[in-house]
Every structure is written in C-alpha cells, then in structure tokens.
Amino acid sequence: MADLVRAKEPFRFYTRLNLTELTGLAASNLVQLSDLIKQVPGASIYQHTHRFLQQHLYLSPEPPNDFAYWITTVLGEDELGEKLASIDTIQFSTIHGLREKIAGTIEGYLKDNPRASSKFAHKDEEFHFMKSVSFILPTPYAAYNLREFADILGKVTIDSIYFHIFEARLRLEKGANDFSSWIETSLGNKKLANEIAKLDPYVYTLEDLRKKLIKIVEKGIPR
C-alpha cells in the first residue's frame, strides 16, 4: 500500500452561515428588474444566484437563480427565463462579471422583444431584492491527508462544503475552489485538484455534491 502524502499545512475547514438582508427594493417588470440588477450591491446578485442551492438541498434540478424563476413563473417569459437559467455561473470568477451577463441578457431580450417590457407583475408577486450577509467561522476540523480529508467531508455541515466550493471561488474571488487549491499546493496532486475544479457544482444538490466530492477524493487515496 502506497503511503499517503502528508501536507505541511492542514486543510482547515470553515463554515459559512447566511443571514438574509432585505433591501426594500422591488421590481414589477423587466425594465425595473434590469435597472436594479445594475445598481444593487454584489451581495444581492450573489444572494439571487445562490439562494436556491442552500434552501432546497434535496431538490434537483432546481432553477439556478431567482431571476430566471421569477421571469418564468410570474412574467411568463419562458424564453428569457431559460436564457437566464442556462447562464453558466461556474464560468464567472467575479460577481461583477455575472451581474453584467444577467443584465445584458435581459436587455438583449427586451431589444428583440419590446412587448415584454409591458408585462407587469401583480403587487403581491413583485421581485424583492435581498442580499446575503455571510458569517465565516472556523470549525474544529482539519485534515493532513486525503484519508482525513474524505472522512471530514462526510462529517462537516453542508454549509462548510458550500463555503469552500461556491463562496470562496466566486464571492471571495479566489479564482478556484478551496479544495482544489489545497490538494494542488499542499499535496502536489494536480490531477485530483483538476478533477474537482472541473466539476460544475451548480448542477448538483448540495448533498449529492458532498457524495461526489467524497468519491473523487477516495479515488485519489492510494490502496
């Protein structure tokens, strides 16, 4: 049995807990929606592109963002809803880039379909902008090798996995998820790091993502 590589610096698991802040801003049609998308804080764009992931842990497939869901179910603009739902969030390394893409998609659609701007949501069904406030806390868990890492992946809260995969990459703009970064730099396992990096985590439920990660990591443990 080959030896497990022991990292000099362990992977320390953090967790992220979310509190939702309300902005008091609401849109009742597409023009207002795209104007507000351009103005609201980044934390608001983050909230509306990631909320579903955390609130519906067991449902899949889920609408990936609140904008797509609202446009489809309330305004009945299925085509635009689909365009927004299929924006590949994993392609964006900053909230700024994601925001531009969402606003640009709505504006492009309005140009081609001017009649869509005259659809208004009922007062009770307006789009309410919220924003995400993240609290990042250390957990007691630390891993020095892949065996420990896989074991802890099975134990930590789903919020911890969420933090290291989604929040670290996009919201903290680290460019990569924390797991891949550690596996590459501290364990020198570029192949395994890449395998995790090329996952599209947005198409999994969080519990399925946990299972998938454990499976990938376990494959990398020498037998």
Binding site: L19, A43, Y58, L172
Partner: peptide, 29 residues
C-alpha cells in the same frame, strides 16, 4: 426540516445579534 425548524430560527437570531456589530457583507467571526 431544512428551513423552518426552531434550530434554524435560533441560528438566524444569533446571527442577527452578531450582525449589529458589523457593516460588511462578509464577516469573519
């Protein structure tokens, strides 16, 4: 079970109390 049990409520209230000391959107505790 995921979103409306008392334990989630307790967590949110504690986060709310803690948030009063910060203005940022990302808070390292």
């Amino acid at each position: 079970k995921s979103n409306f049990l008392l334990t989630r409520h307790l967590r949110d209230y504690m986060l709310l109390f803690l948030s009063l000391d910060y203005q940022e959107d990302v808070i390292h505790l």
